[in-house]
Each structure stands twice: as structure tokens, then as C-alpha cells.
Nucleic acid binder design. Sequence first.
DNA 1: GCAATATTTAACGTGTGCGTTAACATTTCG
DNA 2: CGAAATGTTAACGCACACGTTAAATATTGC
Lengths: 115, 115
Amino acid sequence: MGAARRLDQTLTALADPTRRGVIDLLRKRPRRAGELAAAFEMTPPAMSRHLRVLRQTGLVEEEAVDDDARVKLYRLRPEPFSELRAWLDEVEAFWGDQLDAFKAHAERTRGRKGP
Amino acid sequence: MGAARRLDQTLTALADPTRRGVIDLLRKRPRRAGELAAAFEMTPPAMSRHLRVLRQTGLVEEEAVDDDARVKLYRLRPEPFSELRAWLDEVEAFWGDQLDAFKAHAERTRGRKGP
DNA sequence: GCAATATTTAACGTGTGCGTTAACATTTCG
DNA sequence: CGAAATGTTAACGCACACGTTAAATATTGC
């Protein structure tokens, strides 16, 4: 049950295009909050809330920078992606389990829906 | 560009717990709309809208039943899941690209992703 | 033809998510 | 010290997603 809750948070976080864009950016290298706000032409508060969502879901974490305590670098964390992949594996196991039924369906619909 | 839009639709669809529950049910076998509505203690119109979302995203498809034209069976479609997996692969490639930085970081946080 | 069944569409209320501006820490450095 | 810089909360507005009830559309069967 707790796992489902986390998966829910993860998918809700990933459903937003901005947050997914942030993840695609962080894929290359860690970034600062202001950097990300500018990248999406968004005010700092708006990006701050997105980062909070991503942080609470565990999709990103913040790292302090030693030479300036005002700045935090955000980077990706692997765990939520692994959990999502695990669920995806379960779902896709469907096409292994029900391969027969699938074939049977293909046979029933052969030539009926074609041109 | 179209691919990103589809991924957006897919993740938005999967973010809803009811729709994800529907998918988990359809994983076992195809179901009728009313069957699904009852399974989630929900009125038929509510489930009908969920099914429309899933249909538009291509996550499910409907099949007619030959002995009763009022009934439609819903079943899973693989394509959107494959696209989601593809994106997940891209993101997770991050931990391949930046393995050095990740190892250094994993040492601090005791990361648990096997080789 | 007509009542019953299965599902979808229409209209509506309500909550919530996302963006903005304003105000609040905290840190840097002239 | 005090002004600028970086980032986060607080308060507000708005659009949209999700559920309900009521009405509409097919289709079955007596």
C-alpha cells in the first residue's frame, strides 16, 4: 500500500510537462533553482514549488555548494524511476501471460477491421 | 514533438489511481465498462470518462462482443507502455553516462542500484 | 411496440494544481 | 552595516479534473 502511494506520487510528479522537462535537463548535469526557472521562462516561486514536489517524491535531491551557501544544486535520484520501471514490468508481463488470448483475438479480427 | 505530447497524455492518464487500478484489473483479463465501474464503487458515467481518457491515450481499446452489441470489452494496448519505457530508458541512461559522479554520490547515500 | 439493459453525453458542483505578485529568510560582499 | 543576490513561503486567481445526477442513444427480449 505504501508502495502504491509512492508510485502515485511519482506519476503525478511526472505528469507535469515542466517537471518532466526539469528531469530531462537534470539528466545532463545538476542545475541551480534559478537556472531551471529561467530555462522554462517561469518565476522562481513557481519553479520552487515544482522542485518541492520533485523533492518530496524523491525524484531529485539537493546538494549544497561549498563556496556559496545560498545556492543549492539539484540532481536526479534513481529510486522512483526504478519503482516505476518495476510497475511497468508487471503490466507488460500481461503480454507474456495472455499471449494466447492475444493471438486468438488477432485471429478473430483478421480481415474484419482491415481496409 | 508529437511523441512528447503522447507521453504527456500517457503519464496524465496513469497518474490517476482509478485509471491505474483499471489497468491492473485489465492485466488479468478484458472487462466490461459496468464491471469496472462496480469494481471501484463508482457510477457508470465516471468510469466511462476514465475509459475515454484511457482510450484516447491508446492505453486501452474496446472490442465488440458478438452476442450482445450493447456490451464492449476493454483490453490493454501495449504501445503507450512501450513509449513510457523508452523515455524511462533515456532517463536512466543518466546513471550510465554519469556513472563516476553517481558512484561518488552513491558512496555518500548508500545507493542500491545493482550493476 | 415497449420496458429493461448497457453505455455514453450533458450539465453542474467542488476541490485542487499551477502560475503570478508580495513578503520573508539567509548569505555574500562593498 | 547595508544593499544586492538566491531561494522559499504566503496569499490570491483561474482553469481544469473528477465525481454526481439527469437525459440521451442503442440494443435486447417479451
